[in-house]
Design a protein around this nucleic acid. Structure first.
Lengths: 153, 153
DNA sequence: TTCAGTTAGACAGATAAACTGTCTTAAATA
DNA sequence: TATTTAAGACAGTTTATCTGTCTAACTGAA
């Protein structure tokens, strides 16, 4: 069945990166509901990934996520409504608002990291601990290369 | 700037897979417009990836992409309108339609593969040809493992 | 061999996640 | 101080998914 449903010629680098990422994302966000965070959807990941420990402004989050302020505001307002974020005025800039994770939001971040680590461990058993280490190291080098010339997410 | 804007603790396996994939997808689909295929968007990738050389049915495409028939029909109709696909009756099943790539559609597939290969070559220069080979081999093993227990797209 | 159940796709409508454009207000600058 | 820039709000649009319902066609079992 392996190369029947998805021929090897389609196993491009993009496909090789996308396939496991989709599975991982699906498992992480699927498990969120079970862990008591049903309102957290994949799109909200950018907020959790880019928010700083002492809070961030919506514009900064948008910049770092590489998306429009309006789009970020939409995600932030959803998370605020459901208690994952607290939004207050920015003391340094009267126009801006400061967004910070609540305890519930911190718990989401922790859950996501835990889940990610346990899936990684499972996959390390499948392909070998050595290869998994090598994989991460080389992906890290690729990341450094890509970061050295613009690029966010 | 490297770990300033995106701290290392966020370099989870998911992030390591997602970051290069996003860049690759952006470059491939960005180049599509320049190559004369402006109507092809990232979401249409599932069609090109899963369609068979002698044509496929919408339901089969949907199944293999792991999405609803309606969603696939929406993507297919867009590509048909712009001349990337031809849709005809299925000779074996009066209910079904057969979807097949036109020459223009084949050209998209080729362009996507060419672009992917050239980006891969660029990245191989950045991280080394050996590591790139190892990376692909290990991602391939991960793919096999994931495929052995359900999973599509 | 007909008839019940299933499947393919169409149509309608909903939602999520992004976008652009415009507006107000505040900040920064010249 | 006057002008420009920046932050976020509000309105509307597009894209990409989903469910639900419907008809036509196929399939298998009595």
């Amino acid at each position: 069945m392996k190369s029947g449903s998805y021929p090897d010629r389609h196993r491009t680098l993009g496909a090789l990166l996308r396939a496991p990422w989709r599975v991982l994302e699906g498992r992480v966000y699927g498990a969120m509901a079970e862990r008591g965070f049903p309102e957290v959807r994949p799109a909200h990941g950018v907020v959790f990934r880019h928010i700083e420990a002492d809070g961030s402004r919506v514009s900064d989050l948008a910049d770092r996520a590489g998306m429009a302020k309006q789009s970020m505001a939409y995600l932030v307002s959803h998370l605020e409504e459901h208690g994952y974020l607290r939004v207050g005025p920015d003391p340094l800039d009267g126009r801006a608002k400061r967004v910070i994770l609540t305890e519930r939001g911190e718990a989401v971040l922790k859950a996501a990291h835990d889940l990610s680590r346990s899936i990684e461990a499972e996959w390390a058993l499948a392909i070998g601990a050595g290869p998994m280490e090598t994989l991460k190291r080389d992906l890290g080098r690729l990341w450094d290369y890509l970061e050295a010339e613009d690029h966010q997410s």
